[in-house]
Design a protein around this nucleic acid. Structure first.
Lengths: 208, 208
DNA sequence: GTCTATAAGGTGATAGAC
DNA sequence: GTCTATCACCTTATAGAC
């Protein structure tokens, strides 16, 4: 892992610098992907020299790995919260859409970091996809299918429902450049409009 | 631009090699993005030496530019076909969804090339976004809004409708790695299932 | 802890023989 | 047209002074 970062007894300054590096790295990696990013760029943005950055992290890959590791917990949380015992399944799924859209709005760089990794074939994250992520999706897909069988929501392919929620919400983070360019002045209300639109779409889809 | 590629009188072999280079470049660029890709990789995959590749194209950027240039025509086509005079606007929009999904299925590398470029802030394609693409979207959004006002489709935010169509269809190309990993054996019927699912979703959304 | 200097290898592009 | 050889530069990472 890292030299200083691995130490359990970090000073405040060490923690601050580690976080500054991670923040800068998130910026750079989320934009250019792993191979397209350079340590120089990250160091410069974090306000350190390159060797100094490499004092805190052993390698470029170590920074990237830590970012991805941290990301996945955050990433799975909204879906984890989907409650199988919910009274109103339609509302429960809509609430999930809202959580996911909020994440795209508040953490667009995290979304792009993930998108970049998947786009490149997920070489550094495949185990997490086929492991924890797939398990969670399988579990929640079964919940959704159960709701459908009970007639609490309209019959719907649970996996593609989840994919469509991911796609439509993350789109606003990953393709923000395009969305903003096309909306122009309308960009200002983009997220509220998106929230309204997606609420309507998924409500109409799911209402039994 | 290119040396041999710029010549108007190419031999058959020259054309073939140019196309081989472009095919290999599409593979590599769509996976790693511009900065993450190397000429070496492209040359190797095309079956040429690096200097030989650079005999056909002046630079790495020249190849990338030509790919993007070619892409945009194909990319805009499905939306261009949306007919303002269509009898059944719901069907017309659903047909657009189908064309878009088919493109994601048949040309996933093109979709990922585009995604990579947007994700990186569209540095080499911004003019096309704010120009031809925005113009086309503005035009078609007006058509959709017209249909809504006439009561031919349900009232809906036209721009976010278009974004949601892009997001849901391109997702199957751009996030294919993730989709396949999660679906496992179900991947075999992925596109048929997606087609059914998206048809249902957008029909329910749009039916007046 | 942070710096300068530098090693070691990769990368875009060119020169010149064939 | 295609190759080998090579240049100039960039990038990751380390060594060692302070």
């Amino acid at each position: 892992m890292a030299r200083a970062a691995a130490s359990k007894t970090q000073t405040r300054i060490q923690r601050e610098k580690t976080e500054a590096i991670l923040a800068a790295a998130l910026d750079v990696f989320s934009t250019y992907g792993f191979r397209g990013s350079t340590i120089d760029q990250i160091a410069k943005q974090a306000g350190l020299s390159k060797p100094n950055l490499l004092y805190y992290f052993d390698s470029k890959e170590a920074i990237h790995s830590l970012l991805l590791e941290r990301l996945l917990d955050t990433w799975l949380e909204p879906l984890k919260k989907l409650d199988p015992a919910a009274n109103d399944p339609v509302k429960e799924i809509i609430a999930y859409v809202h959580r996911k859209l909020e994440m795209a709005c508040d953490y667009p760089r995290e979304s792009r970091l993930f998108a970049n990794e998947i786009l490149q074939g997920a070489p550094r994250i495949m185990e997490q996809i086929t492991g924890p992520l797939k398990d969670l999706v399988d579990e929640k897909a079964a919940v959704i299918e159960g709701w459908a069988k009970q007639g609490k929501i309209a019959p719907v392919h649970p996996y593609h429902l989840i994919f469509s929620i991911w796609a439509t919400t993350q789109h606003y983070a990953d393709f923000d450049t395009q969305v903003s360019a096309i909306l122009g002045a309308r960009s200002e209300t983009c997220f509220e409009d998106a929230c309204d639109y997606l609420t309507t779409m998924f409500t109409k889809l799911l209402r039994p």
